[in-house]
Design a protein around this nucleic acid. Structure first.
Length: 269
DNA sequence: ATATGCACCTGTGTGC
DNA sequence: TGCACACAGGTGCATA
């Protein structure tokens, strides 16, 4: 479900609400995630204080002191929800964290593709392979030039977290529309001008999506239970057969690598 | 080494 | 109403 803009929206909400709060209890209600939850390490968070909430790609990084990070990835259907105390459990509730002062953070994940662990800052292997952050001021032509080192379709390459961190299927499609590049174009054949347009489109699309607090086309909600509004601004994603907002041509959908690509046949060459 | 396909799960929407 | 099937925001491993 969540890509960079959704994860960033959640990060901002949780940072505002949880920075300085102390973990009073952490309770595993159903540890059967794809990678089973490790109860002892999670329970060792008790008594720790949240120093801040960071993000790298689609990973949330809670600073819990002494160089330790609580790392959460939401997978396809993961949600972190702040709720009042003494509310009944939610369906698919896996973890419940009680904070002092009063706040309860619940991890809900119907499909169980998310993951959660605790690691020292120096040992964040999962993060080491990640490509550049697209909203880093240093993100530039050089950051995307590796798209060219692959014969894969450029959309598949955009989804590769080792090349650029944080882009998923919605924003890969939206970025390529804004850049005027067809998703099936091979990376090696991209021209310099197209790479430059991809750099600009990546920043613009992600920033606008964050401003709109993410995309809720089905069930995404942020940590306050609010939907995003970027779905009304989508140019191509989930718009098969509808008119292109720029030229009016019917948007096309093609399955590629098991996932849907959407594009305007006239605007994207 | 690199690229593809499928497995991992549950929920929802569609068409019969 | 019920059933079967396609499909969904992501990754990770086996296979070509």
């Amino acid at each position: 479900m969540p890509e960079l803009p959704e994860v960033e929206t959640i990060r901002r909400g949780l940072e505002r609400r949880l920075t300085g709060a102390r973990i009073e209890a952490i309770e595993i209600r159903d540890g059967r995630l794809r990678r089973p939850l490790d109860a002892p390490t999670l329970e060792s968070l008790r008594g720790r204080r949240i120093g801040g909430v960071g993000r790298r790609g689609k990973f949330l990084l809670f600073d819990v002191g002494e160089g330790l990070r609580w790392i959460v990835h939401l997978g396809m259907s993961g949600r972190l929800v702040l709720r009042p105390r003494d509310r009944p459990g939610l369906a698919h509730e896996h973890v419940r964290v009680t904070f002092d002062p009063a706040a309860v953070l619940v991890y809900v994940d119907p499909r169980r593709f998310g993951s959660m662990r605790v690691a020292p800052e120096a040992d964040l292997e999962e993060l080491r392979f990640l490509g550049p952050e697209p909203l880093d001021p240093k993100f530039d032509l050089e950051s995307v030039c590796r798209l060219r080192s692959s014969r894969r379709a450029v959309k598949t390459a955009l989804l590769d977290q080792r090349l650029i961190a944080g882009i998923g299927n919605i924003y890969a499609n939206e970025i390529l529309f804004r850049a005027g590049v067809r998703p099936t174009r091979r990376g090696v054949r991209l021209r310099r001008a197209e790479l430059e347009r991809i750099v600009a489109a990546t920043r613009a699309v992600l920033l606008e999506a964050i401003e709109r607090r993410g995309t809720s086309f089905s069930d995404y909600l942020d940590s306050d239970g609010l939907p995003g509004t970027f779905q009304t601004a989508l140019a191509v994603f989930d718009r098969e057969g509808e008119p292109c907002r720029r030229c009016g041509a019917a948007v096309r959908r093609k399955a590629h690598g098991g996932r849907s690509s959407f594009y305007c046949p006239a605007c994207q060459r």
